[in-house]
């Protein structure tokens, strides 16, 4: 049984249809990436999974259970945690407070210290800035904070929406390295990226989304080698 399963999922913004029958699965332990052009529906897919946008039709299963009508805040309790597009760092909270927000639903408050240490060992920069307001961090630091904060929920499924967006190259490489590390430590990852080259080379499997539909699926390596993908997403003529 896959950890996450979307079957023919549609979603709308008012009358605008953003998702037109998305079908995809994520198995426990995988890194799965979703690539596609701007406006293809990647962010909407993430929002539908985390519950801040409703599903208009189709099936949404997490760990075998239908979560379509489960409130978004309760999906966090179930083990779905998201680092949103644009990072969503709380500007008026310190780095520590932001990380603590990630653990908002956790009952095992005693073990938070260990998880904080884990986040700080993944992102030593955050440890240095722990009392600084989130809004004063650089873009790369905010991205680290958003990922670290999502990890503080101890998720079973980590959703990352364009973690490399707007970052300098040395930060991008670092972020992708850390995603692999997080996955090796046992967290399943669904990664949305426009940086297809890096994303595909780090992913077990990948999906290509175009105007609200999945148009291609395969292993990361297969899609990397696909000529059509090369032309459309990897900037190779």
């Amino acid at each position: 049984m896959p950890l996450l399963e979307l079957n023919d999922v549609c979603a709308h913004y008012g009358r605008i249809q953003a998702l037109d029958g998305i079908t995809l699965t994520v198995e426990e332990g995988e890194v799965v990436t979703l690539i596609g052009a701007n406006g293809a529906g990647k962010t909407t897919t993430m929002r539908v999974i985390s519950g801040i946008r409703p599903v208009s039709s189709g099936k949404l299963l997490f760990d075998g259970d239908d979560i379509k009508s489960l409130r978004a805040d309760l999906r966090v309790v179930r083990g779905i945690s998201q680092s949103p597009e644009g990072r969503g760092v709380f500007p008026g909270m310190t780095v520590l407070e932001n990380l603590d927000m990630g653990a908002y639903t956790r009952k095992d408050r005693k073990s938070l210290g260990a998880d904080l240490d884990r986040v700080f060992s993944l992102f030593p920069r955050l440890a240095e800035r722990r009392t600084q307001a989130g809004g004063t961090l650089s873009g790369g630091e905010q991205q680290m904070l958003a990922i670290g904060r999502a990890l503080m929920a101890k998720p079973r499924l980590l959703l990352l929406d364009e973690p490399s967006m707007g970052l300098a190259p040395q930060f991008i490489a670092q972020i992708f390295r850390i995603i692999t590390e997080i996955n090796e430590q046992g967290t399943t990852v669904l990664l949305v990226e426009q940086n297809a080259q890096q994303a595909l080379s780090r992913a077990d499997r990948a999906y290509v989304i175009e105007t609200g539909r999945i148009v291609k699926a395969g292993t990361g390596a297969e899609l990397l080698a696909d000529p059509a993908i090369k032309e459309a997403y990897l900037g190779v003529a």
């Binding site: 801040i52 805040d73 309790v77 949103p84 969503g88 639903t105 929920a153």
Partner: peptide, 12 residues
């Protein structure tokens, strides 16, 4: 500060 992100943190 950010209602959608607050929801993603599990805030009702």
């Amino acid at each position: 500060q950010d209602p959608d992100t607050a929801t993603l943190m599990g805030v009702n």
